[in-house]
Design a protein around this nucleic acid. Sequence first.
DNA 1: CCGCCGATCTTT
DNA 2: AAGATCGGCGGG
Length: 207
Amino acid sequence: MGEHHRGHPGPIVTARGRLPRTFFDDDPLEIAPRLLNKVLVVGGRSLRLVEVEAYRGTDDPASHAHRGPTPRTEVMFGPPGHLYVYLSYGIHWCTNIVCGPDGVAGAVLLRAGIPLTGIEAQRLARPAARRDVDLANGPGKLTQALGIDDRHGGIDLCHPDSPVVLVDDGTPPPDRPDVGPRVGISAAIDLPWRFSNPGDPHRSRPR
DNA sequence: CCGCCGATCTTT
DNA sequence: AAGATCGGCGGG
């Protein structure tokens, strides 16, 4: 196929390569489905995102930012493109990408991915995973597989020297993602703010 | 395959 | 006291 047709707006296609900050500067609810099939890279390890959840701020009772900024959630109120990493149930680190304009809290939780590169390193980081499909099919597992933890909290994905990178490899998001309620929350449980690649076995298994 | 439960610690 | 989770265990 050739170039786009001159004189027509054409489909919105992100250039391949690292995503610019402007990509994240919108409502998390809009960004979340666009993150599907993007590639998260940490050193030699990478995976394709197949499940995400949108969280807003003060207007979202399920959000950590619901009650305003705190030392933990401060980054969610800052500029887009930074990581919000939090400790879940005292045990697991979970990774979010801050979305929306500076001053407005919002983030997208990265819930699951398909390992692409550095799979040996991901296996070593996830000794409990008996099958490769279990390496990153949950937010805590994804974070552990890539070696992300509190040291990565607040880092700027869009900084040239960032140790964590988000890339478009030319794979578009699904036209019709699966949409459903967010997992593991007890407030705003009916909002369909969870997005995933239809039928992908690498999606998380909600309990 | 499914359901239950403990782990472990930050935040309220 | 609860929580944006996970893995092990027991039962079907």
